[in-house]
Amino acid sequence: MSWLQKLLPPKIKRSPGGRKSMPEGLWSKCPACEAVLYASDLENNQQVCPKCSHHLRLRARARLNLLLDEEGRFEIGAEVLPMDPLKFKDGKRYIDRLAAANKETDESDALIVMQGAIKTVPVVVACFEFEFMGGSMGSVVGERFVRGVQAALELNAPFICITASGGARMQEGLFSLMQMAKTTAAVAKLAKHPLPFMTLLTDPTMGGVSASFAFVGDIVIAEPGALIGFAGPRVIEQTVRQKLPEGFQRAEFLLEKGAIDMIVDRRELRDKLASLITLLMRMPAV
């Protein structure tokens, strides 16, 4: 407890759970600047705080909706569905976790792949759904990713992957570790063609997803403030037994260390991607 909190009479002290007691729906609070915002304002601003530009997390379908032109969208790999090869059970069975995640998110796994266009430029985009078991990468994520790469090759279109993941899916054991090798091998095949592979790393991108295809694209972009790294901050703190530097593993830190090409504001992403793709592919500006 800080000295200031100690001085305050008990009534004024903020209860720890107090911040969340706001009624759902109409109002929303920015987790960074604590500004009270109309939920509709936030939604109209792509879940970016109008006051401080903090980028809140965004669901995968909402992201794809914002990014892709309305015409010509087609989902790839939705027919690939999860199973439980290890009959994995901790407190809960993996099968039940999958069902619960499905119910909660209305998605069947943690990656949605869609072909479409950005400002009329054809693309294939794979987008992680963090709300589905922490965006963890298991067999379905790997297979959908690969099918997305194949589609990009067939369509002669760039492949873009938007990441948001805690890492590999433990409930699939070594199968999930192998998805790192599988997805990256697909990327290696794509790299033989003059088709851009770009990644957009969003909050958070960790572990097995970070340490496979995330950093081997032609262009690596991150969203402002996104937490990106191999090991989680808590694991590192426990290992090195020292406090982590301010801003450690944030997008801005990665840019400074030379790990990424640029940080792009979500509201400018469509224009930015269209510009990068048309430049690389020697197409006229759109």
Partner: peptide, 16 residues
């Protein structure tokens, strides 16, 4: 899992 390992791109090194 260390600070300098992250700074020098542990993820990129493995992915590469």
């Amino acid at each position: 899992p260390g600070i300098s390992a992250e700074e020098r791109g542990q993820s990129e090194a493995i992915g590469r």
